[in-house]
């Protein structure tokens, strides 16, 4: 089984509150990520187990994937200890991710994930 035939899901990812500056100064991105993440959480994101092993892609995996594949600079302002840096708000389909299981939320094709920094001056 080759990597190209691995199932994938497509997501809309948005950055705000200054975070977009770390992602090519683009607020809105459409990304396609592997539908399954290596297990356990925190393992190397470049390794996708063949045959549907691992765990379903969740937001923790998305954060690691964004850091490895989309982020352009200053990774420490986005990711810390396998999750977003404290002070970054996350919404899943316009709902606070704290109501959706945070990093353990299992992503579905077409989900919209928004990351907003609260750390920039008011």
């Amino acid at each position: 089984m080759s990597a190209t035939s691995s199932p994938a899901i497509s997501l809309k990812v948005e950055f705000g509150g200054g975070l977009e500056l770390l992602f090519s100064n683009e607020r809105s991105h459409t990304v396609t990520i592997p539908a399954r993440a290596p297990s356990p959480a925190g393992a190397d994101t470049d390794v996708h187990p063949p045959g549907g092993g691992g765990r379903p892609a969740d937001i923790a995996f998305l954060i690691a994937w964004l850091r490895a594949n989309l982020l352009q600079e200053r990774a420490e302002l986005f990711e810390e200890n396998g999750t977003v840096r404290p002070g970054i708000l996350v919404l899943v389909n316009d709902t606070d991710w704290e109501l959706e299981g945070e990093g353990e939320y299992v992503l579905k094709d077409g989900d919209e994930i928004v990351f907003i920094s609260t750390l920039h001056g008011g």
């Binding site: 705000g16 509150g17 200054g18 708000l89 316009d94 907003i116 920094s117 609260t118 920039h120």
Partner: peptide, 15 residues
């Protein structure tokens, strides 16, 4: 920040 997001208020956020 959530209020601004849900009300779609127009603000500037650069260091």
């Amino acid at each position: 920040v959530m209020y601004a997001y849900f009300k779609k208020l127009d603000y500037f956020s650069t260091e």
